[in-house]
Amino acid sequence: MGLGSDMYRQQILDHYKNPRNYGELEDPTFSHTGENPTCGDTIQMDVVLADDDETIERVAFSGDGCAISQASASLLTEMLTGMTLEDLDELDRDDVIEMLGVDISPMRVKCAVLAEKVAQDGAKIHTGEIEIDSTKTE
């Protein structure tokens, strides 16, 4: 048995310890928050769109919680940069797990998809598709 879980490969630990694009953006086109009550994870995603109101120019996240939720948010900020809102909307849980590059145990999927859900809901609020205060993964 090796050191630690398969779920905690180097990439996850690296993004957890040194999160990319961490913080808040000055003038985000939209900003949205969410939580995963089971772990007490919280995530805020700030997004700046290009002039076409469609292409993601900059993304930042802030939050607190378990390594899976925070590393997933960090990785997602890298992946989203340059994508369109339509691309974002098409992401699903399998894409997130593929991005993480490890097997996520069923009980921890909620942690993994939190950032993705927050970004998607934030975009939908921005385009007027939905009206909610905050996102929850349960």
């Binding site: 048995m1 630690g4 879980s5 398969d6 779920m7 905690y8 089971t38 772990c39 919680g65 378990c66 390594a67 899976i68 145990s105 921890r108 942690c111």
Partner: peptide
Amino acid sequence: GVHAHDLSSIVNDH
């Protein structure tokens, strides 16, 4: 520095 859920996942491997 280790969230309780991460800890529980890792000790589960043991």
